[in-house]
């Protein structure tokens, strides 16, 4: 928003009239130069900004509907962790990011700095794409508290991180303005309540529940 204002005042100084389209154009042309739009996390370290964005997109990638990055869901994870989460979750998260960085390099054989959405997707497939009958083992690991052993610890923190990350990311995504107003069925003032209607008459799920 600050940048938009800055551009507007710049244009005002040059005597241009801005339409919303030209503002977007200016913003995009600026952002296109980087692989990822720059954003300054409040909770995460700057070096993890890319990880948070790419992992978010790997969880909820763009299809015919927007992806996590499109609606800023990854930024919400950062705000939520910084402002809403308690110190225990924050600590778990910090250790989790570290563990995930290590997992990333083992799985992709790449330095984390080069990681793109596809690499994180690969990481998720390896870590989260476990068959249904193996899933309870992971849940048990997480519910059992911090285990002994270096590898067990790394697994514990990685999965703890992924579990919390996904929960918050989904809130950031599905409860975003774009998804809530334009993708899901949005009806802020319904009027009369109707208790039993064909699902086709609504389409996608209601955004306000």
């Amino acid at each position: 928003m600050k940048r938009r204002k800055a551009i507007q005042s710049l244009c005002a100084a040059l005597g241009y009239t801005l339409t919303p389209g030209t503002v977007t154009g200016l913003l995009l042309s600026c952002e296109a130069k980087k692989s990822e739009p720059f954003w300054e996390p409040m909770f995460f370290e700057q070096k993890d900004a890319n990880l948070v964005a790419q992992l978010g997109e790997a969880f909820l990638p763009r299809t015919q509907t927007p992806g996590a990055k499109d609606v800023g869901a990854h930024i919400f994870v950062d705000v939520f962790m910084g402002k809403v989460s308690g110190s225990e979750d924050q600590e778990l998260f910090r250790k989790g990011v570290k563990a995930l960085r290590s997992k990333f390099e083992k799985i992709t054989q790449k330095p984390i700095i080069d990681g793109g959405t596809m690499d994180y997707s690969k990481v998720l497939h390896t870590l989260y794409g476990v068959p249904k009958d193996k899933q309870p083992t992971i849940t048990q690991l997480l519910d059992g508290g911090v285990p002994e052993g270096k590898e067990e610890k790394e697994n514990f923190y990685t999965y703890s991180f992924l579990r919390i990350f996904k929960k918050i990311l989904m809130m950031g995504y599905y409860a975003s303005k774009e998804i809530g107003e334009n993708v899901l069925s949005y009806l802020p003032v319904p009027g009369d309540y109707e208790g039993c209607i064909p699902v086709e008459s609504v389409g996608r799920a209601w955004s306000i529940t």
Binding site: D192, E194, P198, V202, T209
Partner: peptide, 10 residues
């Protein structure tokens, strides 16, 4: 009841 839904939040 998969084909049924409702409108509004009573």
């Amino acid at each position: 009841f998969e084909d049924k839904y409702y409108k509004g939040r009573k």
